[in-house]
Nucleic acid binder design. Sequence first.
DNA 1: TAAAAGATCCCCT
DNA 2: GGGGATCTTTTAT
Length: 194
Amino acid sequence: MRPPGTVPLPRRFYHRTAQELAPLLLNKLLVAPDGRAGRIVEVEAYSEDDPASHSHRGRTTRNATMFGPPGHLYVYFTYGMHWCANAVCGAPDDGTAVLLRALEPVAGLEKMRLARPAARTDRDLCRGPARLAQALGIDGEADGSDLVHGPFRILDDGVNPPPRPTTTTRVGITRAKELPWRWYVPGSRYVSRP
DNA sequence: TAAAAGATCCCCT
DNA sequence: GGGGATCTTTTAT
């Protein structure tokens, strides 16, 4: 089941470079199996030729999903306590993905609040890559799962991406800081950083 | 085998 | 604005 008036993004939608796909994911819906959902308002691109990417030094146990078929969820663990979620794209064996950095909460807010006791306001439920993963219940179990068929899916409800998304450098990296591979919805109050 | 770094968050000042 | 939490993965010895 899925919300009325929505369709999953088809597999072919993910057959693009991360830099092409990232801004196209803005305003799409990330939906959990229990109905929790948020609108994607901030993303970053990572690819093999990028020194900041997990895939830059080749395939490992941890990043294997990044090198798998597109349209799947790459979930990794970091800082000893946080999970972060990516949409795998490109062709199989490409090692490229889009990091989902912030959502505007749209459904299942009660469950998100329970999952995110540290969030003092609803604005903080999904504002940041580890926060959104926690809010929707995404963890290592979901690594490698299918974004087209679920359990976690990206759906299109007819809202177009912003025609002029804001482009900036990426957050929290030490290498390739200068590359302009972060995009967000202009004016959204749910982005992690303006 | 050891050491360091990490696509972050939270709470304090 | 800054530091600590917390532990896996990666890289160096």
